[in-house]
């Protein structure tokens, strides 16, 4: 590469602009595709889904059939494209993986048999691991509250879940019309239904806890 660099380039620049400033501020520099392919992200997606993102040829059938497409900020096929191009930040901070309901419509219809729903799982997982500021943070809070119930009881304790989620989000007023109804109908048990061998559940959680694994 060195042979082609104009050694006098610096001299040719206007004197009031430093070389660094010029290159740093050019937006194109952040938009050169396929530059960050040495990142661990494509590898992680491959490990998680057993498929390479290069499979996707961007036909858009996934987005076309996605039932929650209208609630996403970026079309699902474009998330794959961003990952293909190496624009990871843009993909990870999108609301799309969080809005994805995992209904598998895309995976079933994909002409390349790319499991897009599995891919979205992987993207979410990476976003959590990389501590990306998630757009749909309430959804993440819900998942955390849900898993906390499982960790504690081995089964879902619905009242516990709703309670914990509401404490996390301070969204205390919604669902007032359904919850009392559920009580009245005698559907929600007041006490959690517990697994006896909760030790095994705790062990699973401990062994798969990402934070603890990372510390090792």
């Amino acid at each position: 590469m060195g042979a082609y660099v104009n050694k006098d380039a610096k001299k040719l620049q206007p004197s009031f602009v430093s070389a660094n400033l010029l290159t740093d501020t050019l937006p194109e520099n952040n938009h050169t595709p396929f530059q960050k392919n040495n990142s661990d992200i494509p590898e992680e997606i491959r490990n998680r889904t057993f498929q390479d993102v290069s499979l996707c040829y961007q036909c858009g059938k996934c987005s076309a059939g996605c039932p929650v497409r209208y609630y996403m900020d970026i079309a699902p096929n474009k998330i794959v494209r961003l990952i293909q191009l190496g624009f990871y930040d843009e993909a990870l901070k999108s609301s799309t993986p969080w809005i994805c309901a995992g209904c598998l419509t895309c995976s079933v219809r994909c002409p390349k048999e790319f499991n897009l729903a599995g891919f979205m799982d992987a993207v979410r997982e990476i976003a959590v691991k990389k501590k990306v500021k998630v757009k749909e943070k309430d959804i993440l809070k819900f998942h955390k509250a849900f898993l906390n119930q499982i960790k504690r009881y081995g089964r879902l304790y619905e009242i516990g879940l709703v309670g914990e989620y509401k404490m996390k989000t301070l969204d205390l007023l919604s669902d007032v019309e359904t919850a009392p109804g559920l009580f009245l109908k005698g559907k929600l048990g007041l006490l959690p239904d517990k697994v006896k061998d909760r030790k095994s559940i705790k062990k699973i959680f401990k062994k798969t806890d990402k934070k603890k694994i990372n510390k090792h």
């Binding site: 799982d121 959590v128 559940i201 699973i204 798969t208």
Partner: peptide, 25 residues
């Protein structure tokens, strides 16, 4: 006997190892 939660969406959406382990238990 002593079945536990399959992990549901919350597990597979955030931690695939956990999700597999909970289901396969």
């Amino acid at each position: 006997c002593d079945w536990s939660c399959c992990g549901a969406t919350s597990a597979h959406a955030t931690n695939h190892k956990l999700s597999n382990a909970l289901a396969l238990r």
